[in-house]
């Protein structure tokens, strides 16, 4: 299409009385077509689903960290309970002295222990 023809087409396409759809197609056929880069779709999808994947990985990491924390915490609580039970069985009470392992020790025996006599 020659320059004057395309100019006429542009002006007439803006006339409210004309069929805009038909004229838009004619304008497109004359070479006025628009599209994005060939890799546009892949880029859009990578932008959306790539970000989503990173987000999902982050959530998965936090979930695993939580589950690991629960396991460590439960093991710790079980160990403390076992320790308390064993102290109670060995010392017969749960006093501070029992915890320190000096529940049935006399002061003299401590002095002897330190002075080596």
């Amino acid at each position: 299409m020659k320059r004057p023809e395309i100019k006429l087409l542009i002006i007439s396409s803006l006339d409210p009385g004309t069929d805009a759809g038909t004229l838009a197609r004619q304008i497109e056929d004359s070479g006025v077509s628009y599209d994005f880069n060939g890799k546009f779709t892949d880029r859009v999808l990578d932008k959306i689903f790539g970000a989503e994947l990173a987000f999902n990985r982050e959530i998965e990491f936090v979930r695993k960290l939580n589950s690991a924390f629960y396991r460590v915490a439960l093991t710790g609580v079980a160990a403390i309970l076992l320790l308390l039970i064993s102290i109670f069985l060995m010392e017969g009470s749960l006093s501070i002295n029992s915890f320190l392992g000096i529940g049935d020790t006399y002061d003299e025996s401590i002095v002897c222990l330190f002075t080596d006599n």
Binding site: M1, K2, R3, I6, K7, I10, I27, S30, G31, V32, S33
Partner: peptide, 9 residues
Amino acid sequence: EKRDAKEIV
């Protein structure tokens, strides 16, 4: 011609 048309638009 096509380039012309696009440039004009």
